[in-house]
């Protein structure tokens, strides 16, 4: 049975203007991602991977085309509506973890919950659950500076899942990690897909990381090629 796509992209164009010149970055992208799919985006540097990921996650605006995520055409949302939409539907994992250094692991994970109407007690419950998913229950009160890179990325993953979003976007989540830590993170991401049913879109340069994904798509000079959908 064919699954309903959770991400639906049609005829997507994006360009940047630099020194008065239009530079096309994404050209006529068409992409469907099914629910509980783990998709890896690969391609050379500058091919537009991050740009595409940002568009899917609603932190950038397309020039034209349709981006439907979890049933919403996000190209039609205003800035404020987008912010609200992101807070409830998308979890973010970045290459450099991007934790707030003056907040503890607990407080970092709690951040996205501050935008919900949850009480302090409810927030604590959610944070504790998320921290146990990433196996860092004993590091709640540590500051990012007191954690290893791999641990920081796990805190970032806890922050990404704490609001229980439908889709998680990750831009080179293992790009700054050694192989062992990277394995850890990838395993964790697989678990998010298998156990929690999350949909993950991951940009990566690392073929090993991409190997964990169900599907690998290749971007080259802004064009999503007809790479055979590699179901593993």
């Amino acid at each position: 049975m064919e699954k309903q796509p959770i991400v639906e992209i049609k005829n997507l164009y994006k360009s940047y203007r630099r020194a008065g010149q239009e530079i096309p970055v994404l050209q006529d992208i068409n992409l469907d991602i099914a629910e509980s799919e783990f998709l890896a985006l690969m391609g050379p540097s500058g091919s537009g991977k991050s740009t595409l990921l940002n568009l899917i996650a609603g932190i950038d605006k397309a020039d034209s085309g349709l981006i439907k995520v979890v049933g919403t055409d996000i190209t039609s949302l205003s800035e404020t509506e987008l912010a609200h939409w992101r807070a409830t539907n998308v979890g973010f994992i970045f290459q450099f973890y991007n934790l707030i250094p003056v907040l503890t692991a607990f407080e970092n994970v709690e951040l996205p919950l501050l935008l919900t109407g949850l009480s302090g007690k409810e927030r604590r419950g959610h944070v504790e659950t998320a921290m146990s998913v990433v196996n860092l229950s004993d590091r709640m009160d540590h500051y990012p500076g007191q954690l290893s890179g791999g641990q920081q990325q796990r805190v970032a993953i806890a922050r990404a899942v704490v609001t229980d979003p439908t889709i998680i976007v990750a831009d080179e989540p293992t790009g700054d990690l050694d192989r062992v830590s990277a394995e850890d993170i990838l395993e964790l991401m697989e678990r998010l897909v298998h156990e929690l049913g999350k949909t993950i879109v991951m940009v990566t340069h690392d073929p090993r990381a991409a190997g964990k994904a169900h599907i690998i798509r290749n971007l080259d000079k802004g064009v999503l090629n007809a790479y055979p959908q590699t179901h593993i």
């Binding site: 932190i59 992101r86 991007n98 707030i100 996205p112 935008l115 922050r159």
Partner: peptide, 9 residues
């Protein structure tokens, strides 16, 4: 930028 990404206005 991260705070904005998370939905803070």
């Amino acid at each position: 930028a991260v705070l904005k990404t998370l939905g803070f206005g």
